[in-house]
């Protein structure tokens, strides 16, 4: 039987809520809550008859071995590991120069402790399975013994490299293909292989997510994921973008056969449309319901839609 673990986020971390200690099984997370009782609680155990005691206490008796003042209650919780992982894992950057060459980040970023995947998980207060799910969701990977997660640009470049390698090799991405065939084409660009494999894992069909010699990409996961990714690259740029242009870029970066499937419906809740320009928001940005300045357009925002990545997960299934 695999043992249980009590975990907590590092005390310096200030991820949204105050951090609690949790008890984790492989697949479930329980929050630990301290419960004080006004009653006295005694933990008792049979004790050896005591020869020196009074007559009445020479028969087998009971003895208090502890009087706990506090007990811990377990409450099953479903916490996402993603915010914790984002906090702990530094971003991996890829820069593309004008000639189509890539420059990879080489030094470890300051301010981040170098932790392997398992060491990172030890600092995330969720169960192992949830850590693993979040790890795949944010496309994290290990590089030189440390954990990294790609920036949106690094992700997009890696994805594009995979796509162009597949196109030139005649690989059908939604059928099973040898990773090696793909890798040979990408290797020279300098992408870390672990990153390429992490992208493949992120887009793999649910039933064979395990990394290995073979891979395939789930079309129904890939299309919304890419749409959201491209939309995310718009974040921060004040550029107004026509929805039709956005859609074209999206389609251009899909395998030819999938083009027709891209649709704004996949990324509902991640954008607002104002006239026909598209505006991205994430994690509360642009969503303050009280502001009326942006509400003149067609608003597709609903109050429950702030956790955009969870939305994608649903649409991706």
């Amino acid at each position: 039987m695999k043992s249980l673990t009590i975990k907590s986020a590092p005390t310096t971390s200030s991820v949204s809520a105050p951090s609690h200690a949790v008890l984790c099984t492989t697949g479930e997370t329980f929050q630990l809550r301290q419960v004080h009782s006004s009653n006295s609680i005694f933990l008792i155990q049979p004790s050896q008859p005591n020869d020196t005691a009074e007559e009445a206490f020479r028969s087998p008796g009971l003895c208090t071995i502890a009087a706990p003042k506090v007990t811990l209650e377990l409450h099953r919780v479903a916490t996402s590991s993603v915010p914790h992982l984002r906090k702990l894992i530094p971003t991996f950057h890829v820069q593309e120069d004008g000639d189509g060459d890539f420059e990879m980040m080489t030094s470890w970023p300051t301010g981040f402790e170098k932790r392997s995947k398992q060491e990172t998980f030890a600092h995330v207060p969720t169960c192992e399975e949830e850590c693993e799910r979040g790890w795949i969701e944010i496309v994290a990977f290990e590089l030189n013994g440390g954990s990294m997660r790609p920036s949106i640009w690094a992700l997009l470049s890696t994805y594009k490299a995979i796509l162009s390698a597949a196109t030139s090799q005649g690989i059908q991405l939604d059928s099973r293909f040898p990773v090696e065939d793909l890798w040979q084409m990408i290797e020279d660009d300098g992408f870390p292989r672990a990153l390429v494999e992490a992208v493949l894992a992120r887009l793999a069909p649910e039933e064979h997510i395990t990394r290995g010699e073979w891979a395939s990409i789930d079309k129904s996961k890939c299309i919304p994921w890419l749409g959201a990714l491209i939309l995310e690259t718009e974040q921060g740029s004040n550029r107004e973008r026509f929805a039709s242009d956005f859609l074209k870029e999206w389609k251009d970066n899909l395998p030819e056969a999938w083009r027709a499937s891209a649709s704004l419906d996949f990324i509902k809740g991640s954008y607002t449309l104002k006239n026909s320009t598209i505006c991205f928001y994430r994690d509360g940005v642009n969503t303050t319901s009280t502001t009326s300045s942006t509400s003149t357009g067609i608003s597709k925002v609903t109050s429950g839609s702030r956790k955009w990545h969870e939305k994608f997960r649903n649409t991706g299934k």
Partner: peptide, 13 residues
């Protein structure tokens, strides 16, 4: 199996 049991009382000894 270990012989441990719990006793609770309102008050203190």
């Amino acid at each position: 199996p270990s012989g441990l049991a719990l006793l609770e009382l309102q008050g203190t000894i």
